[in-house]
């Protein structure tokens, strides 16, 4: 028995020397202010639930249904990354980026490499178009990740037909995961359903919230005026006021996370619409 104890003590000491005495559950939390570990979104409530920001060198995901706020969150990520001085890339599989929205969100457009895919929502009789276009988009994503040194790379397939995504081999995501590991790049996949993520990545599911965020009318300037009257109900957080669409409320929930980030944490965000010209 003493021999066993001695051996165990020696083993533990050896593990400590080798720094192998930590388990996934005992990993130290990432420094939320270390921009070389995480990429903050700039939204305090969201950063709080994702451990300071989206982790670098990992594959993360933003999922949600149509009009759930995925694109809004992506533009926020792009804006905060370009504000940090990083180059960012957007592989836009369906070529749906609205440049005006991106500019309004604060994205430094000259630092955004925009790769416009040609996946079509309705291929008609040309059934082979989408799989080939999706493969091209994945290849473009691979090239960008291989080049390295982009602070944020987003693969946006939010409106891609599910069949086009389903035809991709699962090894695709493993390969992408291996490409991004060890880099300073945040790779974010955007889709309606979870596709893949690396071990230390996070999956944020967004949806429109029913309730109202507190203090929404503050700091909104003239667009906040008159919101109390004429607001439509039953639109799942979307706010309409008279002739203008004001925005909608988003609930972001961490559905899958690494040991460092707490799952099922959620944050409420409110979006504001770009005014009509």
């Amino acid at each position: 028995m003493p021999l066993v104890q001695t051996t165990r003590a020696g083993l533990e000491a050896l593990l400590r020397v080798r720094q192998l005495d930590r388990t996934l559950s005992s990993l130290p939390p990432l420094d939320p202010y270390d921009e070389y570990a995480v990429g903050a979104t700039g939204v305090t409530t969201l950063d709080a639930i994702v451990g300071g920001g989206f982790p670098r060198g990992q594959l993360s995901e933003i999922t949600g249904a149509r009009s759930s706020g995925r694109a809004s969150l992506v533009l926020r990520l792009l804006a905060s990354a370009t504000a940090r001085g990083e180059l960012v890339a957007l592989v836009d599989a369906l070529d749906m980026l609205d440049v005006e929205s991106a500019s309004a969100a604060g994205v430094a457009l000259d630092r955004l490499l925009w790769i416009r895919g040609d996946v079509v929502a309705h291929p008609g009789l040309c059934h082979d178009i989408n799989p080939r276009a999706m493969e091209r988009a994945i290849r473009a994503l691979s090239l960008v990740l291989t080049a390295g040194h982009f602070g944020l790379v987003v693969f946006d397939a939010g409106e891609a037909p599910a069949r086009a995504l389903a035809r991709l081999p699962f090894t695709t995501w493993l390969r992408l995961q291996r490409m991004v590991e060890g880099c300073q790049t945040i790779c974010v996949l955007v889709g309606s359903e979870p596709m893949a993520r690396s071990a230390a990545g996070i999956t944020v599911q967004v949806r429109r919230a029913e309730g109202r965020a507190e203090g929404r009318a503050e700091g909104r300037g003239q667009r906040g005026e008159g919101m109390a009257e004429g607001r439509e109900r039953g639109t799942r957080g979307a706010t309409f006021s008279g002739r203008s669409f004001e925005g909608f409320e988003i609930e972001a929930r961490v559905v899958r996370a690494s040991a460092r980030t707490r799952e099922d944490a959620s944050a409420a965000l409110v979006t504001r619409a770009v005014p009509h010209v």
């Binding site: 700039g42 939204v43 409530t45 706020g69 694109a71 809004s72 969150l73 992506v74 533009l75 926020r76 369906l94 749906m96 980026l97 609205d98 005006e100 929205s101 991106a102 309004a104 969100a105 604060g106 939010g158 409106e159 965020a213 507190e214 203090g215 929404r216 503050e218 700091g219 909104r220 669409f245 925005g247 909608f248 988003i250 944050a267 409420a268 965000l269 409110v270 979006t271 504001r272 619409a273 770009v274």
Partner: peptide
């Protein structure tokens, strides 16, 4: 303070 910081993007 207000959780208002995101632009409602268009696709």
């Amino acid at each position: 303070s207000s959780a208002v910081n995101v632009v409602a993007a268009l696709r």
